[in-house]
Design a protein around this nucleic acid. Sequence first.
DNA 1: CCGTGCTGACTCCGA
DNA 2: GTCAGCACGG
Length: 827
Amino acid sequence: MSNSFDDIPFFDEEPDEPPRKQPAPAAPAAGGLAARAMAARDGGKRPDYLSGLNPEQTEAVETLEGPVLVLAGAGTGKTRVLTTRIAHILNTGRAFPSQILAVTFTNKAAREMKERIAVLVGGAVEGMPWLGTFHSIGVKLLRRHAELVGLRSDFTILDTDDVVRLIKQLIQAEGLDDKRWPAKQFAGMIDTWKNKGLGPGDIPEGDARAFANGKGRELYFAYQQRLSTLNACDFGDLLMHPIAIFRKHPDLLKEYHGRFRYILVDEYQDTNTAQYMWLRLLAQRPKGELQNVCCVGDDDQSIYGWRGAEVDNILRFEKDFPGAKVIKLERNYRSTAHILGAAGHLIAHNEGRLGKTLFTDRRDPEDIKVQVHASWDSEEEARAIGEEIEQLQRGDATGKRHLLNDMAILVRASFQMREFEDRFVTLGLNYRVIGGPRFYERLEIRDAMAYFRLVAQPADDLAFERIINTPKRGLGDTTVRALHDYARARDIPMLAAAADMIETDELKPKARKALFDVVQSFRRWQEMLESTPHTELAEQILEESGYTDMWKNDKSADAPTRLENLKELIRSMESFESMRGFLEHVALVMDAEQNENLDAVSIMTLHSAKGLEFDTVFLPGWEEGLFPHQRSLDESGRAGLEEERRLAYVGITRAKHRCHIWFVSNRRIHGLWQSTIPSRFLDELPETHVEVAETEQSYGGYGRGGGYGQSRFDKADPFANSYSTPGWKRAQQNKTDATRDNWGTRSGHAVEHIGYGESGPRGRTIDGELVAKSTATEPSKFKTGDRVFHLKFGNGNIVEIEGNKLTIEFDRAGQKRVLDGFVERVS
DNA sequence: CCGTGCTGACTCCGA
DNA sequence: GTCAGCACGG
């Protein structure tokens, strides 16, 4: 592979000039005549990495001068553009690797980008010190200039746990009741403020007064003070401090302007205000200087508003960077035309967007429409999806067998996962859950890691405190405090203090004996560190410390899983050279790869599915209240609704060939069975690309869903004028006519149960728009004592009537509260 | 130090 | 309904 990287030297400190001066071609309108002419001029010898790009991608790669916004729709090759662009900058000699600032949100994205650049340029990424997450780059900046904000450069970064503990101490120190004013809540508030770039002096008076008897601001000040004395900062500070530094020291900022010749930002739609300020400081140059900033993102995939992301940042790009070039990538390489059509029609209902329409030229031999399915309840939903999966596994209509790895179930809320897990366990169907508590965050992993850390780094007091009494050894608070004091007084690590104290008689004999044993063990393990293979040592540590036994003796339901996780931990160590190598990896990346050899269905939330793709995607739970989620509507109104819709869009566009959407008529919410109505998003899908799946012997097929589906928005649909009659309604209408009489009275009741729980008045509005109507409760047609039949619970007797909610003693299912619409009187 | 029983939460979760 | 986190009594 011949490229010109071999002769680019790696400098840690950057020279002022780019490595090689070429007659930098003034970026031509790529894809146009000029670009082609240029290619011809170069004798058609364009670098390999540029071939295979479409015209828009090429333009995005080659427009290197001036601000560029790349609006990259789902599956349009966004990462390819980003990485190729970097390769192109390097290859044309415009900058050293160290003169490019490339920011991502997640470690995963940064890692992938590094890997892909490495492939393109053959390993030169080692020299890209400024490719990383906002936070990792923030750390780097802060370590260089820590003294400017009163820190030392060896400051520690506190994780969320540490922060909460610290705040709790502060609340108590203020003489406040830490029950009434939970530390966790305040930690959340600080996080929100910092996402907005607000320091203690900047927060709104209302916010300041809302906590701790009006002492919110004081508390925030005290918190920052405390961090400073501890020489520590939280995640928010990794952005806030650099911002403060750049503002206070324009000369320094100017230095960085000189350093970063090219700036690239991934997932720009997810930036929050603080990140935006940070970026503007670095990217906005004085008049006359070039602003080579390139932001890549998709406003239609902005789903992190609740975490402080401001879609507005991307919508405003052209104003912030006058003369910016906006390049839209709309050619999709992932999905079928039907899937794109469905997704596109849905997202077109959003108002605040820049507007893109994905298309594909691909024609699939087996071009399947998006399928909408109805089920009676969530249990049946899980059953039906399970069957569909097994069907595909055996072979689809064309006889092709599908791997479980190519299928995913994407849910709105994590509680939906359980039902699928339960079902798949009974079916013996392999599945994996993505997301949830991360591997390293699990209790048992943290404990085990603490043992390993303490063996490798005897001075790690946090690790010491974590495991000294885990499993229980009779070394409680008293002993730990004594050790703590002893260690502090002599300025030695706690493990060393323990070794000292067993020689004295300061401790009670019982504690002393226990401590003696632990110290002996650690001494032994430390000696083995060099001589024994690290996986073996790890196993031995967990055995001898009694840690595995602790879980073996634990009767709780998750104990086996925890033991399994510990095994997994040991297995994951195999790919590392040594214990130290492993520990370092975990500190930086803290993700554990899943077992990819296993063929399994993925189950995850829609949020964690962003950026992924699957051949077949199942989207269960499309019901009002759950999706769109009521809370999102209540808290953020129209903006909330639009974000939910983007989430739906993200869900559909994950699918390459098959997309199955499900909704149910009944779902258990807070332990109570409630009837639900189909999501409004179903009504927003276009008839031409969607079809109602043939009934799979399901109750839903009776047309129950259709019953309310069609009555729901007939009069109040806020979007009724803006688009054609949805396919779902019509298809259902045909189906339900026959059965309407049996269930016809029910439509009004269902609406009543929109949303979760009892909270809030009926008939919620968004920005004054009626989004759901509720029918006044009619006098019940039932009376106590009536004998009734319920499709799920069978026969029973009514014991209480409350409006349209009936409490029924079922013969087999026990007492339940159900809606009167879902039972029939039997004589 | 340990187990039990009570209370509240219960959309998404990056670094 | 279920779980986690916490207080309290043995």
